[in-house]
Write a protein that binds this DNA or RNA. Structure first.
Length: 418
RNA sequence: CGGAGCGUGGUGUAACGGCUAACAUUCCUGUUUUGGGAACAGGCGACUCCGGGUUCGAAUCCCGGCGCUCCGACCA
């Protein structure tokens, strides 16, 4: 799109009420807008990144057999009473509201209850299982203290997948697949090298759950990392038993701050028993479905990438989730030769399916470059009087700062963006 | 929820209890400039978060709200 049509603009200074680096940069660059504490709107650039992240996650979820759907945000009190999760004394992050007739409703903070209840309509036989259903849905959590920009909000988009399996074996197989898929996702969005499968509390149906923890000082979790095995243990569960289970020696572990970007959890029959989700096995006897839940906070993931992959000049998006593939920058000349060439190049790139943010604004070079660095699109292409004279375009890599010049044809032929 | 700090044009800051609330930036006009947030000139934009109180006089002091940030607690 043409940057002259983008309604957001960059700022030199971040609002003083933001300290978190991710929020500062994302606000300065025009990706997000703060509505109130812990509640952020997605602006055009931010929305594009969020959708790219969704795309990456969706691809992996579909690959392991996930079926995408969409549950409701409004929640039926009765369902949650059945699992004993309605009471504010038990779940203290509910946002609740009322109908005109005073009946209470909740705004969903997770979706085990409604999906499990829904599945009772469709699951009768072992032939119906397994089922893997997922969604991208806005979650509401009444956090006592929102913090860290978009990394801990009160309203955020989350991918949550729920698995419904016949038995433990089937569940375990899927659980491992999901773990791999999660690894793929974090690799693809560029934080794989510092994201660790982390052993955490498992609840009543399994010994451990697994968190995906990404190292960053902005995180609020403390984990103990084993570089050698590329795994970690959440401080909450660090004890001799865990160390023994994993064959690790405490002295080999390094304490680090990290943010939980994903989490997979075995639920056993916790919900299927409460909500009566059963199937008939081959012998005709009734059994409870074995469940698991698998979450990724997509907004938090976006904030984490912003936090980690940025530098002093601004954001640095990996190609996989950048708002655009290329930032085409026109430096105007008197005869408008450059603008004509840039206009044409923009159209040509778009025709090839390359996503381009075209800075066609009538501004000086310095301001355009500063904006470009701040927004962080991975490849910057400059067309100016100079490049026209040499019959090339100037290509700069946002991450490395490397610059090279190639002809337009060469650029299009060699541009690999996936 | 405990503790600390802070609310002044869109943004960042300033202003002893006392003139028309100042400066920078953004934005608008014009001149000039055109490869790293240029320069000059002019201009728009604020009931100083809200409500009370003290005072001849309040952005400034006091009380009560509301909001924001940070530390802690919490975090399926």
């Amino acid at each position: 799109m043409k940057q002259s049509q983008l309604f957001t603009k960059t700022r030199k200074e971040a609002p003083k009420d933001e300290v978190a680096k991710n929020a500062e940069l994302l606000i300065r660059a025009g990706f997000i807008h703060k509505e109130m504490a812990g509640v952020y709107s997605m602006l055009p650039l931010g929305f594009r990144v969020l959708n790219k992240i969704i795309g990456v996650i969706r691809k992996e979820m579909n690959a392991i057999g996930g079926q995408e759907m969409s549950l409701t945000a409004l929640q039926d009190k009765n369902l949650w009473e059945a699992t004993n999760r309605w009471d504010d004394g038990i779940v203290d992050i509910w946002f609740k509201t009322k109908l005109k007739n005073e009946a209470e409703l909740g705004l969903g903070f997770t979706h085990e209850e409604p999906l499990t209840a829904l599945m009772t309509e469709y699951v009768d036989s072992y032939r119906d299982l397994p089922i893997y259903a997922y969604q991208f849905q806005t979650k509401f959590r009444n956090e006592t203290r929102a913090k860290s920009g978009i990394m801990r909000g009160r309203e955020f988009l989350m991918k949550d997948l729920y698995s419904f399996s016949k038995d433990e074996k089937e569940h375990e197989e899927f659980y491992e697949k999901a773990k791999k898929a999660y690894g793929n996702i974090f690799n693809e969005v560029g934080i794989g090298d510092r994201t660790y499968v982390t052993f955490a509390s498992g609840g009543s149906f399994s010994k451990y759950s697994h968190e995906f923890q990404t190292l960053t000082e902005a995180g609020e979790d403390t984990i103990f990392v084993s570089e050698e095995k590329k795994i970690a243990i959440n401080k909450e569960v660090l004890n001799d038993e865990v160390l023994g289970d994993l064959g690790l020696d405490k002295s080999s572990l390094v304490e680090k701050k990290a943010v939980e970007v994903g989490n997979i959890f075995s639920l056993g029959t916790r919900f299927s028993e409460s909500l009566n989700l059963k199937y008939k096995d081959e012998t005709g006897s009734e059994k409870f479905v074995i469940m698991g839940s698998y979450g990724i906070g997509s907004g938090r993931l976006m904030g984490t990438v912003a936090e980690i992959l940025s530098d002093e000049k601004g954001l640095v998006w990996p190609m996989s989730i950048a708002p655009f593939h290329i930032h085409l920058i026109l430096l105007n000349d008197k005869e408008n030769k450059a603008s004509k060439a840039a206009d044409e190049f923009y159209v040509e790139l778009a025709r090839k399916g390359i996503e381009v943010l075209y800075d066609d604004r009538d501004l000086r070079a310095g301001e355009k470059f500063a904006d470009s660095d701040l927004i962080g699109i991975p490849v910057r292409v400059v067309i100016s009087e100079k490049t026209i004279a040499e019959n090339v375009v100037e290509v700069k890599d946002r991450k490395t700062g490397e610059v090279h010049k190639v002809s337009q044809e060469e650029f299009i032929r060699t541009f690999g963006f996936k």
